[in-house]
Design a protein around this nucleic acid. Structure first.
Lengths: 334, 334
DNA sequence: TCTTATACTGCACACGTGTGCAAAACTAGA
DNA sequence: TCTAGTTTTGCACACGTGTGCAGTATAAGA
């Protein structure tokens, strides 16, 4: 049913080799013949088979994208960015979610290998290790987003967690806060620790000694819940401001605060991280640290394409930006 | 570098045919030989090439997924559902966003054809037509989500827009509202019209004549903005409740209401559609019509797999569910 | 007209896997 | 030991495309 170059060859009275060359605009074929072949190809509705091409060229022009959940509000724009660049460059994207399950993670790797993807981008905030080992064996280049790794085939594009955290904390300090809490994420250790480092650095820089009671890492993978738990613990520790691992955590804190009659920002200031869409329409609109998510995706894709083109690349770290809205204000009663 | 069945054949001292059969667990090969081959395959780190398999089997075990934007909060869970089922069935998903650009839409179709996807799922709320024509030519089965189409290869899984709308409106009527407005979507004509139909049916059923001033379809593709504009127009028309095309529209209305000092739900009730996550943490938490989005995705994928297995299928329509939260209350002053 | 360079074209093989058919090896029965 | 059946294996081709090399046709120069 599908028309192949052989069919065109027959119709044009030439060999399939000539058709193949003509369609690649090779200078080796007679311009008239080439024109005729192009005409026939169009008329017959020919579309080359990427499958067959891949088999011989040993390139699939395909990249594999792993993430935990598509419904994670952080990843959406990153994926948009990746897809955008990949499409433009003639690459297609295989989407696989790991659901945070190590078994599925390995299955994903096998799938990608079977499909012979040219490269892999990992958004899955955990791991990196698991993929790394197996994929490195296979010489498949990998780019990690917001998740540094190490190894010959492991590169990364990340946002500057520490700098972002410092922006947030400095903002609170400038408003006059002295007791600032941090709600981290137990399930995103590395980045949570980097944000914590930024928080601590800035607090110390202001001459405040770090009180361990002000750092809370609730043991749950659900961000909103985590924010709620975090807030309760920190409020008991008498903070006037909390810096949250991400916007959903911050929103969880906001909700818990309202429930307990704590007024934001009058009684308590709250800062998030990410700048997901809801952050500006929750009540009150959330002060947050914006990650350039679309850009993050584009850079990751670009880096992968560069790797595939044998260009030299090095890890990138993108800066964050503070977005001040209404969830932060000077501390009460002083 | 990659190990092929030929390599295994050599190592085992048999022909590649035997290896091929052994790995497929064909009864045609000597159990001992088969065991030996499996052992070698494992040791040598063999992974079959899906590319080569596809070339001969004429199946790629691949489905193409088109949507306008991944960052559309509606699609995330639907995609989760699709991906979940597809993966389980051994299929992989190609992700392409059309960005609502007709040119890109056709490019997507060509990409899918080149890659020889076995089937296509379309989440792109518009169109269906464009894909249809070309893809039908190619005999590629298509499943549309929330977007009916027609044609031999066009099937659909949708939510019952009309029923959902009726649930929403009935709820408002039961609370005592008589002047209920509807904010539609200009860029999602078909479903918006179906929701409008449900709205009208229910209003008329209550013995209220339909006032055209109560139906507004702002000319913008931005939902939040649309909700804001819609609210202004409807408030001027003295409604006591508005039913919005979707949650983001409703949130836009909520924001505009707050800006103008209109209290929700005391002065005005607001109902959305979709039940996206933010709907329950905006202020006030939004009464809305829940779409079974994950299920929608799973059903769509299942339908496509059934089509690929030559099973008989027919369009499906899933019911919605009313979720009552705090944005609705009896009308004021009566 | 003959030679030689040039412009095209086709043959044949490769990529990695699946499979019909014939051949080979083995088994059992007489 | 021979025959007929059964089990197991390999040959050879197919899938659709790319490409080195040899071959043919054409043009140019002497």
């Amino acid at each position: 049913m599908k028309v192949s170059i052989k069919d065109i060859a027959e119709a044009a009275g030439v060999s399939h080799s000539t058709v193949s060359r003509a369609l690649q605009n090779s200078p080796l074929v007679n311009p008239q013949t080439a024109a005729q072949i192009h005409k026939l190809a169009r008329e017959m509705g020919y579309t080359p088979s990427a499958i067959a091409q891949s088999l011989v060229t040993r390139r699939t022009n395909t990249i594999g994208l792993v993430l935990t959940f598509i419904s994670d509000p952080f990843v959406d724009r990153v994926v948009d960015g990746i897809e955008d660049l990949a499409t433009t460059a003639g690459y297609s994207v295989f989407l696989c979610s790991s659901k945070g399950d190590p078994e599925r993670e390995m299955a994903v790797v096998e799938t990608f290998h079977r499909r012979r993807v040219d490269g892999v981008i990992v958004l899955s905030s955990r791991v990196g290790r698991l993929y790394g080992e197996r994929l490195q064996e296979l010489s498949v280049p990998i780019v990690l987003v917001n998740n540094q790794g190490e190894g010959e085939y492991l590169y990364s594009v990340s946002v500057d967690d520490e700098q972002g955290a410092r922006l947030a904390v400095r903002h609170l300090l400038e408003l006059g806060h002295r007791r600032i809490g941090y709600v981290g994420s137990a399930f995103r250790q590395p980045s949570s620790l980097r944000r914590l480092a930024g928080y601590q650095a800035e607090v110390e820089r202001a001459g405040i000694s770090c009180d361990p009671d002000l750092v809370v890492v609730p043991d749950t993978s659900h961000d909103l819940e985590s924010g709620s738990l975090g807030l309760q613990r920190l409020w008991a520790a008498k903070v006037t401001a909390v810096f949250c691992y991400n916007d959903r955590t911050a929103i969880g804190a906001l909700l818990a605060a309202r429930e307990r009659g704590i007024k934001v920002p009058d009684d308590l200031s709250v800062v998030g991280f990410d700048d997901i869409e809801p952050s500006w329409y929750v009540t009150p609109p959330l002060t947050t640290v914006r990650q350039p998510r679309f850009e993050l995706g584009k850079r990751a894709a670009q880096m992968l394409l560069d790797l595939l083109a044998d260009k030299q690349v090095c890890d990138e770290v993108l800066p964050c930006q503070l977005i001040v809205r209404d969830s932060t204000a000077p501390p009460p009663n002083r």
